[in-house]
Amino acid sequence: MKNTEIGYFILNAAVSFLLAPLMMGVINKTKAFFAGRKGVSIFQLYFDIFKLMKKERVYSTSSNWILRIAPASTMGLTILALLFLPLGTFRSPLSFTGDVILFFYFLGTARFLTVLAALETGSSFEGMGASREVQFSALAEGTLFAVLGCLALRCGDPGLSGILQKNSLQLSSLATLAPLVLVAGAFYIILLCENSRLPFDDPETHLELTMIHEAMVLDYGGADLAAVFYAAALKFYLFASFLVMLLLPEDCYRTITGAVLAVAGVFVIAVITGIVESCMARSRFLKLPQLLAGATVLAALAIILQCFLQGGLD
C-alpha cells in the first residue's frame, strides 16, 4: 500500500473523529433558523463533552460491570467501524471482501451493549427505551440488508469500499439512476431510524415516555455520558458519509475534490436532516413500522429494477 493511501486513511479518520460533533451543531442550528431562533453555538456538543469529562460518574446500585464498560466500548466499536470507511477514491487499508457486514455489525454490537446496559439499571424507563430501540433496529436491519444487497448487485463488489466507490451517480447514463435514487431514499430512512432522529425519535425531548435512545442513557453521567454523546454523533457521521459517497457524481469522484466533497456532503445531510426535523413532528410509535416497511419496499423495488437493467442476477 502506498504512503499516500495510508496518509489519506489517517486524515479521513482524524477529520471524521473531529468533525462528528459539529454535525449535531449544524442540525440544531438549522432547526433554530427554521424556528426563527438564534439557537446555541454549532460547537455546543464539544463544550458539553468537555464539561462532562470533568464531572462525576454515577452508577446504579442495580448495575454491575456492563453499565461501566458500555459507553467506552460503544465509542470504541463506532471508531472501529469508522476505520473501514473509504475517503473518495482511497480505499480503507483494512478493507476486505464482505467488510460491509462487519461495518454495520460493529454498530450493531455497540447498540447491543447500550441496550444491555439500559436493562441492567432496572429502570422501567430505560427498559422501555431499550425495547423500542430493539424493535425499530430489528425492523430496520432487513431494510438495510436489502439496500446493501442492491448496491452489491449494482457494482458486483460486496466490500464497503467497493460499494461506496463503484456506486457513484453516473449522470451520463440516466437509466441507471433510478435504482440508486430509490436505494438512497431507503437508506436515508434507515439513517433517521438508526440515529433516533425525527420522525422516529425526538432527540430534543425530555419526556421519558416518548424517548427511545435518550431513555436508554438516563443513568449515565460524567465521562460516560460524554462517550455516549460522542458515539451517537460519530454514528450519525458514518451513516451520512455512507449516503454522501453513494450520491457523489462519477466525474468528481476520481479526484481530490471528490474527497473534499465527501466531507462537505456530510454537512449537507446535516442541514437536510435539520430541515426535515423542522418540518415534521414525531410520528406515533404504531405508525413507524409502516415507514420502515415503505423503505423496505423502496429497496426491493430498486433490486428488481437493477435486475431488469442488467438482465438478471449475474
Partner: peptide, 25 residues
C-alpha cells in the same frame, strides 16, 4: 483497542465515581 478505550475512560475522567440508586422519575 477496546481495552485501551476502557483505560482511557478511567484516565480522562477527573470527576470520580459514585454509586447511587437508579434514577426512575
Amino acid at each position: 483497542f477496546l481495552f485501551v478505550m476502557l483505560l482511557l475512560q478511567n484516565l480522562f475522567c477527573k470527576g470520580g465515581k459514585r454509586v447511587s440508586p437508579t434514577w426512575d422519575c
